[in-house]
């Protein structure tokens, strides 16, 4: 096995995803297969080869520092699930059960 269920669970927590035990089993099997497939890259000699993370010639495009009008708050709130008085509403950030 290239990856264990507990590793998959850890990665899920980093990715802010939750799985049921059944899903975890299925994902672990599939992740394992995918990781095995991608591990064939280890046979390529890449000593001294630079990385490619972008295929554009333009790096760090500059623009004039001028003000332009943006989007109104009203517009921006259109897709917000819950808002009030121009603010986005979210549940309590601190879990109250942990406070005591």
């Amino acid at each position: 096995m290239a990856i264990s269920a507990s590793e998959v669970k850890h990665v899920a927590s980093l990715a802010k995803l939750a799985f049921t035990d059944e899903e975890l089993q299925k994902f672990t099997g599939q992740m394992d297969e995918i990781i095995e497939m991608v591990q064939q890259l280890s046979e390529v000699n890449t000593d001294g080869i630079p990385v490619t993370t972008s295929v554009t010639d333009a790096i760090g495009v500059m623009r004039e520092d001028v003000t332009v009008s943006g989007t109104s708050r009203e517009e921006l709130m259109k897709n917000v699930p819950q808002h009030q008085d121009g603010y986005i509403k979210v549940p309590a950030i601190i879990d109250e059960s942990e406070e005591a």
Binding site: V11, V44, T46, V51
Partner: peptide, 28 residues
């Protein structure tokens, strides 16, 4: 699945063997 694979490839301990390696082979 892809978010998981991506998160795994970028995480400490696997970054060099996965993301960096892939970005090098991309150059080739």
């Amino acid at each position: 699945r892809r978010i998981m694979l991506g998160t795994f490839s970028l995480s400490a301990g696997t970054y060099d063997a996965f993301f960096k390696k892939a970005a090098q082979v991309r150059t080739l």
